[in-house]
């Protein structure tokens, strides 16, 4: 089994965002996260590349991503005061898209910080 080694990987589990982690991974999962602390190790090792969940759910039933995107857009479009919330466990690139979407919707935009 071939392990690829990724140097200077970044852990985003806590606000330290350590960027000196060495990951040993195959196609399926990460086997080792060197330099990471217990929390970071658990975070890296608990995620796998397998398909654990359905692609999407609409009203609790399995659906394709395309259908779910259309349904999400329709719900947001029909709403008078949609709310865009969260944005903690995601990338800045996705956050930027969220801001633009909230702006276009004329809705509310908020993150974890306000709790």
């Amino acid at each position: 089994m071939d392990l690829k080694v990724i140097d200077h990987a970044t852990c985003t589990f806590c606000g330290c965002v350590c960027d000196d982690i060495q990951l040993h991974a195959d196609d399926e999962r990460i086997h080792q996260a060197k330099k990471a602390c217990v929390l970071g190790k658990a975070w890296f090792l608990n995620h796998t590349a397998e398909r654990k969940y359905p692609d999407a759910l609409i009203d609790g039933k399995e659906a394709t991503v395309d259908e779910a995107i259309a349904a999400a857009a329709e719900h947001l479009y029909q709403a008078d005061m949609p709310l865009v919330y969260g944005m903690s466990n995601t990338t800045c690139e996705a956050q930027r898209e969220c801001v633009e979407m909230a702006d276009h919707l004329g809705g509310l935009l908020d993150s974890h910080t306000s709790l």
């Binding site: 005061m81 944005m87 956050q95 909230a102 004329g106 509310l108 908020d110 974890h112």
Partner: peptide, 28 residues
């Protein structure tokens, strides 16, 4: 001491785009 994930990023991105860090309304 910011918590998990990229909460700091959310603050920064919202500040960059809107001028405010959270609790924003675009309804006007």
């Amino acid at each position: 001491m910011r918590g998990h994930g990229n909460v700091t990023g959310a603050d920064v991105i919202m500040r960059w785009q809107t001028g405010y860090p959270f609790g924003i309304s675009f309804n006007r």
